[in-house]
Design a protein around this nucleic acid. Sequence first.
DNA 1: CGCCAGATTGACT
DNA 2: GTCAATCTGGCGG
Length: 194
Amino acid sequence: MERLLPKSFYYRQPDVVARELLGKILVSCASGACMRCMVTEAEAYFGECDPASRARKGRGRIWRALYGEPGRALVYGMHRQWLLNIVAHSEGMAGAVLLRSCQPLEPHRLDPPPVGPGRLARALSIDRDVDGAPVYDLGSPLTLWENPEAVEGFRIACSGRVGVSEDLELPLRFYIAGNPFVSKARVSPAPKHC
DNA sequence: CGCCAGATTGACT
DNA sequence: GTCAATCTGGCGG
């Protein structure tokens, strides 16, 4: 059987965690029935040093979450959708991983595929109720699991983050190369080999 | 309190 | 290509 990713998994730099979350299993029981999918695309955000981070916006609840305990879901709304992040950073730092796309497991024919952060949240019934949920904790409405099936391996590609007006030099968007459940940015950021 | 912009998406010209 | 919906938080009146 699969194993929950431990809390310590999230006590690392957001870019490391974003990369390592690819291929992992995301389980959402937010709607009552549980739904499983594999993470195919994620982006890393840092704290106030990151021009694209919401920590830049002010010291509200999002700022507190980014500087708060790693391994917790951070859900907030924008443009009429919910965006799902997992808080991830080393001790004393700040950051999170934005889950952008996933591949449904099981016979789930999702109409708009859960590709793109807004669609992912909608497909998994993610909303403010899930905010703060510890994803390393069994019994949480949202959990992340090891994926023994994915050991076969896949290529990871990376690029600049999607939709940000000001990005860092580092490539902070990671995705499974060739997987159909990955968003195509309107203006696709140049992919690089990682 | 109103207005603006941002890690978006779907409908429509 | 363009528009608008409406979550969060800063800023101006």
